[in-house]
Computed example of a mutant assay.
Amino acid sequence: MNHLKQIAAKLPEYGIDAMLLSSAPGEFYGVGFHGEGYVVVTAGECRYFTDSRYIEAAEKTVTGAAITMTDRNRSYPTLLQQAIDDLGIRKLGFEDRYMTVAQYNYLNNALQVELVPAQGLVNGLRAAKDQEELDAMVKAQRIAERAFDEILKFIKPGVTEKEIAAKLEYDMLRFGAQKMSFDPIVVSGPNGSLPHGVPGDKKVESGEFITMDFGCIYGGYCSDMTRTVALGEPTEEMKKVYNVVLQAQLAGLAASKAGVTGKSIDAAARKVIEDAGYGEYFGHGYGHSVGIEIHESPNANMRDETLMPVGAAVSAEPGIYLPGRFGVRIEDVAVMTEDGCIDITKAPKELIVL
């Protein structure tokens, strides 16, 4: 999988002769390879430079770009300048979201070329997933869902949050994940009011909610899901809050489609929670795009007015968090279409009581 042709086609729009990919996500998006190096993309030719640690794997994986290895006599700046001279590059776009000031200064001093910030070129392309990307994301989601099925059999009073998190990771790996999308969040009872709480030694108890936020990477692409389950019979208030969150998510999904803003999707879900009297307990955004990275753009929050493109894969994760008592979050990932969205998450959302 690579996206070199798509990147090359966008160069005139940004007034640049070539695009330099130097970040891990950018490199993977460009040439479909996780290593370390630089990708130079022009309309006529692409070059990929890496070192001895990755050259053998790169030669087996990378297509569509000439591959060159650095050595003592050919540093990255030397190879980049050679490409600049050979390909007649005067304006070279770079990933300003990822490049540090030190990296920029290093390249700006070493290269005879104008460096032009062009993060929008790559971000715009990455926002709209193609079918190959979506296939990988669906596979990652199915792996996570298998792990969820297993964890439901594992949870019982006395098991710790850490043990639940470890079991989720183990099962996702044994079911085919490359690695985790992020460190799993597992919080129970009063810890559930911490949206990004860290699993601890607390033992889960009957009568509590347990919120699990987790995902894995397959084929370089992330999955992301959250489920809140009850251990033992929940109270009427717990059931009410759970239902409000579920209805909020369904309202957000109903408002989701290409051509609308993330702000409007967030508003549809947020209104349900506010109307139920819990508005102050929903502090984060409704969702974020998912792909090579677990957090991409555009976002579905109170501020983002970017129009959703066809193929955007956006999390749907409203929540209510009552400090010191409990919390509820339900998260799916939905792919934007012209007429609506496709929810690629198949795990049940109705309240599960263990």
Rank of each mutant, 00 (worst) to 15 (best):
L134M: 01
T261D: 14
A57F: 11
R227D: 06
I16S: 13
E163M: 03
A9S: 09
N73G: 15
E27T: 08
G197P: 07
A313E: 07
K156T: 10
G252Y: 00
R72E: 12
N123C: 00
T61Y: 06
L253K: 07
E56N: 12
G279R: 04
V335Y: 01
V122K: 12
R270M: 07
K202P: 08
A251E: 12
L194G: 08
V186A: 13
F214N: 09
F33D: 11
T211M: 13
I67N: 10
E36M: 09
R53S: 00
S75D: 09
M212L: 09
M172W: 04
D171N: 06
Y170G: 05
Y14P: 13
G93H: 05
I67Q: 11
K91T: 04
A118N: 03
N109C: 02
G215D: 13
R97M: 05
P12G: 01
E305R: 01
E36N: 03
Y106N: 10
R90T: 11
V122D: 06
M172A: 11
M172L: 04
P77C: 13
E161Y: 00
L125N: 14
I84A: 10
T261A: 08
D51K: 04
L79M: 03
Q141C: 00
Q131V: 07
K156C: 14
M137F: 04
E56T: 12
A313C: 14
Q178H: 08
R74F: 02
N191T: 02
T261H: 04
Y278Q: 08
K271F: 10
L92C: 03
A334R: 13
I344Q: 05
G93Y: 00
L322V: 06
I320E: 08
R270K: 12
L322R: 11
E114S: 14
Y278L: 13
S256A: 15
A57N: 10
V229S: 15
V314R: 12
E208C: 00
I294W: 08
N191W: 01
Y221K: 05
D339T: 10
M225D: 02
E56Q: 13
A147W: 04
A18E: 09
S181R: 05
L246Y: 14
K60F: 04
A165P: 07
T78L: 03
G200E: 11
T160G: 05
A248L: 03
Q131L: 09
E331H: 11
K156N: 14
Y98D: 11
Q81E: 11
N123L: 11
A248Y: 01
K202L: 01
E169Y: 00
L21Y: 00
A127D: 01
D304W: 01
F326M: 07
I89P: 02
T261S: 14
G26E: 13
P318R: 12
E317G: 10
Q249Y: 00
K240P: 00
G219Y: 01
Y321P: 02
K240R: 10
Q6W: 03
K257N: 09
E27C: 07
I143K: 02
I7S: 11
A267W: 00
V101F: 12
E317K: 10
A140W: 07
F154Y: 14
V353F: 15
G340H: 08
N191E: 14
G311R: 07
